[in-house]
Design a protein around this nucleic acid. Structure first.
Lengths: 321, 321
DNA sequence: CTGAAAGCGCTTACAG
DNA sequence: CTGAAAGCGCTTACAG
């Protein structure tokens, strides 16, 4: 293993100078810096992260925290985010560690150990829940974190999110403009997640601007009957904006069972279904998980020289596919 | 931050003794060991992993490698495995790092850096492809690894897998025994993944033992027509064993379109669908991703004292749900 | 612009 | 059974 000591000896320099040169310290002449870097490459030098982290009293690691209770299908989304996070981390010579568990206590212990034993100072949370014990802990510790999803009213921390009002608005308009839908309906759950509320807002705004009235169904899991009732009671409906792809697919099938000969356009969110399950009447809003992950890293690690320019959130665009 | 030095001073011992005591070194008297551990807890001592890893020349980290090109839906499975891996790692005071990227080169660079810079010596691969450049690299380096899925014929390394022949056999018998299916068919893809071949074997064995003939459909993505043809040409079929849940769901819907009034039982693999999309005619074989993750860690880190007992793989059970 | 020295928090070969 | 000392590979305050 090649160390800075080896490079120093080869060049007749001190390890101090080599260390500074490799870290691009301005106190070392440009000439020396270049020379050291060239030699380091030549010798196949690889910095030892453990030594670096020990002296820096801080790991070059970002801890990514999974929610405890998530729907299995959300995993699709999480892995997309991981991909984006890691792309950015690699180019910064950072490492990605994850905290995941079956209970809050497990995750808390995991994160605590990351902070105190592994000296990790940067975290990304794949969720943004209210009164979350992990978030409360991170706020007390001397560490930075970013959540995927905005904090609830009255709370404040770094976050990445989509513009879900706009995503609801755009989705609805897509169905009205592109498919001449006259009666788009909106399907959500009883969970009232922030993104559901926002997309519902966008939906209402779009139908309102088109001079139509909103029609909204709130479903529970697996409640085929109330869905069927809704479909029968709204014979005029000709398109569906559903809160996610699974809800969209479910509604599509219920509709087709009841009206086998009528066509309907459906739109969901997350672009998470395999092509086997969909057809040309099925649309989805891709909320760009990869970009959300990348943005989270930028927010977390790119501290602008100018403090004024410090961002406290990044909004990632969406696309209808 | 409490260090072993602080503990040593408080107890009037040397750091050597404290270090050995904490590592449960037999050379230290049981009394001293107990005393040191008690005091360490009392003082809230937390070992510094970076220091540990620097001296040990090896990180207490397992690197988990994602496949480059995977179906989005497989992410569900991967996160389940991660959960199992991390449960085992936490109790061993190990950390989970991941390597994930959009190209083979990215992943290779990522893993190389984990080996040389982060000093990671243990890897788990979430896949088991033939002629995989990452696997070939790991074999050359001085590191241990385990794959999820068995290696191809002629290759040999540590792995965790299901008994997919049995999973095909059990799934088929479930439909025949429990639902009196007379004509179960098998649906696979043209990819011929090892697990498809094995489950197909199991299916054939089951129908053969029941004195029936196998009927098999190989589909391409999104080929509704050939599926419809198949359904029409096999009017006697009364149950479907599909290679995964998505294929099962797709077949179920095609069948219902063609035969709205007939019932059929379908069985898929992975237990990956949200309950909204399924009903009582839908069954799935859970292949226990959590347990696969846990087994992978055991295989990787638990070196038996007796070399004879060294396992080279673990087969994880499945359950029909 | 560069260097000698100390230190980060551990482990372990050597000595007693 | 325990300890003094060296070392793992870096960074940085201090000095010149």
């Amino acid at each position: 293993m090649v160390t800075i000591r080896d490079i120093a000896q080869r060049l007749g320099l001190s390890t101090s100078t080599v260390s500074r040169a490799l870290n691009n310290n301005k106190r070392i002449s440009l000439k020396t810096r270049r020379n050291v870097k060239r030699t380091a490459d030549l010798m196949g030098y690889q910095p030892n992260y453990n030594a670096k982290n020990l002296t820096n009293r801080e790991a070059n690691t970002v801890g990514v925290v999974f929610p405890v209770n998530n729907r299995v299908v959300d995993n699709i989304f999480y892995v997309g985010i991981l991909r984006g996070i890691n792309a950015q981390l690699n180019s910064r010579n950072y490492v990605l560690s994850i905290a995941i568990g079956d209970s809050t206590q497990q995750v808390i212990d995991n994160v605590k150990s990351m902070i105190t034993r592994a000296q990790i100072k940067h975290f990304i949370l794949l969720y943004s829940h209210q009164n979350d014990p992990v978030i409360e802990m991170l706020q007390k510790e001397d560490v930075d974190f970013v959540t995927i999803g905005k904090p609830a009213e009255g709370q404040k921390w770094l976050y990445v999110d989509n513009d879900n009002v706009k995503a609801g608005f755009d989705g609805t308009n897509f169905l009205m403009d592109r498919y001449q839908s006259q009666h788009p309906v909106f399907v959500q759950t009883h969970n009232n997640w922030p993104y559901e509320i926002d997309r519902g807002e966008g939906y209402k705004k779009a139908v309102d601007e088109a001079g139509k009235s909103p029609v909204i169904l709130s479903t529970h899991d697996n409640d085929d009957e109330s869905e069927d009732d809704f479909i029968r009671q709204n014979p005029q409906m000709d398109s569906i904006v559903a809160i996610d792809d699974y809800s969209a697919l479910q509604m599509y099938h219920r509709y087709k069972m009841i009206n086998p000969d009528k066509d309907i356009e459906v739109l969901g969110y997350n672009n998470s279904l395999p092509s086997e399950l969909t057809d040309q009447h099925f649309h989805s809003v891709d909320i760009h998980p990869d970009e959300m992950g990348q943005s989270a890293v930028k927010l977390l690690l790119d501290k602008p020289a100018d403090d004024e320019k410090m961002l406290d959130h990044i909004i990632v665009g969406h696309a209808i596919v």
